[in-house]
Design a protein around this nucleic acid. Structure first.
Lengths: 117, 117
DNA sequence: TTAATATATGAACAACTGTTCATATGTTCA
DNA sequence: TGAACATATGAACAGTTGTTCATATATTAA
């Protein structure tokens, strides 16, 4: 079996081994979706707000100065990835951070960027 | 000073306080950039590979099955955000994970998605 | 020098994202 | 009931991203 020529550092056998040790395609794909959700400033702000206190949509709307529709769309994205969860409370829909994991994630991200300042 | 009408749960004063407690705009913006970088499957795979062993561009190219150009562009993004760092080694450019923080970040992301499986 | 190898960069294009607008659904209270 | 409030959803559009192709730069060895 012929192997394409690569630079002399490449050890095809070793690369194979390294590839087997990375998470499976499905996990990578889901992770990409999670980080994709965290890449929006609006959604980050939502998480930093919810980190302090669970809130309904209209509270978030007021805090963020975007339309109710935009907040709702953002919340759906976060909800679908289980980054936030939801609870009905009469006519209000109350959102809150899903778990400690999510808190850690945004904490790590924040520390990374503040570290360099 | 007139306040727009909002739903009865909104406490304008409290919202103001919550807003002051979220990271400043510049940090949010930088965080968004970091998560934006982590949202690409190619870049995630690069990080999961580098987590095991520092590698030069052509090793990554072989492992990932995308063009050398694509790898290089991805590495630049990661480099600019200080997620990976670089070292010259003769004619090779060796990339490696910037610090333990970055390892934690991808670890958290992975745990979050695997937790639900 | 020059040729070969390794990496970086710019342009261009298809694919995707976030927002708004318009509208639908769900809930409460009169 | 129905009117008012709270939230969700679909369509559409501008802006952004990731890839490839073509080419430039950097390093080594001859």
């Amino acid at each position: 079996m012929f192997m394409e020529e690569k630079c002399e550092r490449v050890d095809t056998q070793q690369i194979e081994t390294l590839l087997q040790a990375i998470p499976e395609a499905d996990s990578i794909s889901k992770m990409a979706a999670v980080f994709q959700a965290l890449q929006s400033e609006t959604r980050l702000k939502i998480l930093f707000l919810l980190r302090q206190k669970e809130m309904c949509v209209c509270e978030l709307e007021q805090a963020l100065e975007v339309t109710q529709s935009a907040v709702s769309h953002s919340l759906r994205t976060l909800r679908q990835l289980d980054l936030v969860r939801v609870r009905r409370e009469g006519k209000f829909t109350v959102y809150y951070i899903a778990d400690e994991h999510v808190r850690m994630l945004i904490e790590m991200g924040l520390e990374h960027v503040e570290e360099k300042a």
